[in-house]
């Protein structure tokens, strides 16, 4: 037990320290490196809170893919001329505001009701009906399926929003910068060695998510990370955004999910209800399509908007 206390103590000190380092670092790259470490430490915190599914998502999306996105942007952005730092009254006011909110949240955390309200018993009682072994997958794909559907749609909308930033004449071309800076050195070797392992692991995570920690988001983000690595190393190029196949891949998951939801009106009790005998196969099918669409959408969200005039 003492080992667990030690781990808790280290995490409780290290996470705010690394967050502070990320905020206060003078240069942007160390700040971003601290942010990636922050994501990985938070993943450990999630393990300590008994949430391995969230830990996997935080490590892959919160730390990994977000980190790549921000570091890529930092390399391309010219940093503005250093402005005069805000005056002390504003800083004091902001510090007081932040402290007040932290204090309010702390009081709320300490005053939480006992026993804590929980939907765990209901989830446990209904989980058998879904034939899933992982309660989080049960919530994501059965009990609160509408949230997951909307979230998959949000990814599609974000992709459309980013594509919409294409300058005049570039619409339809390949997203992202033409020349990447990383296209040599050890990253190329890594990009050749890692994807075969990562792709198997990503598919495994998506598949095992029905009964153990994992699922469409976690598996999809590992798959996306493998493509992003190969892209950064200059081994693959993103397809043109007017490619029909690409667009179909982006919407396949949400579209299938929506169709299954609508079919619920006919063959089951209503929207997003599954016929009892088919629950697990339908969930697995939806999860497979979602994994694919999430992976493609995450890649496109990192790649960005087309920059060069498209050649027909």
């Amino acid at each position: 037990m003492s080992g667990a206390w030690l781990l808790d103590g280290v995490l409780l000190l290290a996470v705010p320290a690394i967050a502070l380092a990320s905020l206060l670092s003078r240069r942007i790259l160390p700040a971003l490196a601290a942010f990636v470490a922050y994501g990985l430490l938070l993943a450990l915190v999630w393990m300590r809170l008994g949430a391995p599914d969230v830990a996997l998502t935080e490590a892959a999306v919160g730390g990994g893919v977000t980190g790549v996105l921000l570091i890529g942007a930092a390399a391309r952005l010219r940093m503005p001329e250093a402005e005069a730092p805000p005056g002390w009254p504003l800083r004091l006011l902001t510090a007081l505001l932040s402290l007040g909110i932290t204090a309010g949240l702390a009081v709320a955390v300490l005053a939480l009701p006992e026993p804590a309200p929980s939907l765990a018993p209901q989830a446990a009682a209904q989980l058998a009906a879904t034939q899933l072994g992982n309660p989080v997958a049960g919530v994501l794909l059965a009990f609160r399926a509408i949230d997951t559907l909307l979230e998959a749609v949000v990814l599609v909308i974000a992709v459309i929003g980013i594509w919409g930033m294409a300058p005049d004449g570039a619409w339809g071309g390949r997203p992202g910068p033409e020349q990447l800076r990383l296209a040599e050195g050890p990253v190329v070797l890594l990009a050749m060695l890692l994807p075969p392992i990562g792709i198997v692991f990503g598919i495994y995570l998506a598949w095992v998510g029905a009964d153990a920690p994992g699922g469409a988001f976690q598996g999809g983000s590992i798959l996306a990370a493998m493509w992003i690595l190969a892209w950064l190393a200059g081994l693959v190029r993103p397809p043109r955004i007017d490619s029909l196949a690409l667009r179909l891949l982006v919407v396949a998951g949400p579209a299938l999910f929506m169709l299954v939801g609508l079919a619920g009106f006919v063959v089951a009790d209503g929207f997003m209800a599954y016929p009892a005998a088919w629950t697990k196969p339908v969930i697995l099918l939806v999860e497979a399509a979602l994994t694919l669409s999430i992976a493609v959408a995450l890649c496109l969200l990192v790649a960005g908007w087309p920059m060069r005039r498209a050649r027909a």
């Binding site: 008994g50 949430a51 969230v54 804590a116 989830a123 446990a124 309660p135 949230d147 949000v154 990814l155």
Partner: peptide, 21 residues
């Protein structure tokens, strides 16, 4: 909210996964 044999209430956990994405 851990209970019913789970290490945590799966509903907020699932919502957080959605939130991170």
């Amino acid at each position: 909210g851990a209970g019913a044999g789970f290490s945590g209430d799966p509903v907020p956990q699932a919502i957080v996964i959605t939130g991170i994405v």
